[in-house]
């Protein structure tokens, strides 16, 4: 079980780290109402997963995982650009970035 990918650091330890980071991201998404912070939490979750992919890539000695991280980064960049544009729009229209404002869409 204790597979070391570095000297003295096992995969298991990295898995713990990524799970913790991911859960912190989830916590941010769930407990905050500020759209920007939620957005940043999402980025945090993405990054933790990227880290995990690199760990597994290292474990299997395969480039594929790192290539995938590369693509996921570019998708994240695109997503942030569009998402921030939407946030800017939302702020201009409502003078607020509280995501509960979005419940107005329901009416």
């Amino acid at each position: 079980m204790d597979i070391e990918i570095l000297n003295g650091v096992s995969v298991q330890q990295y898995l713990w780290l990524t799970v913790i980071l991911f859960s912190i991201g989830v916590l941010g998404v769930l407990s905050r109402k500020n759209a920007i912070i939620i957005f940043m939490s999402v980025e945090l979750m993405l990054n933790s997963v990227n880290l995990l992919l690199v760990v597994f890539s290292k474990m299997h000695a395969d480039t594929l995982g790192q290539v995938f991280v590369f693509f996921s980064m570019s998708v994240a960049a695109a997503e942030v650009a569009v998402g921030l544009a939407i946030l800017v729009m939302m702020y201009r229209n409502t003078k607020s970035i509280n995501i509960d404002i979005l419940s107005k869409i329901k009416e």
Partner: peptide
């Protein structure tokens, strides 16, 4: 259940 609150949906 359809509160319209995004936080609820995410939860």
């Amino acid at each position: 259940l359809q509160t319209g609150q995004t936080s609820f949906y995410i939860l």
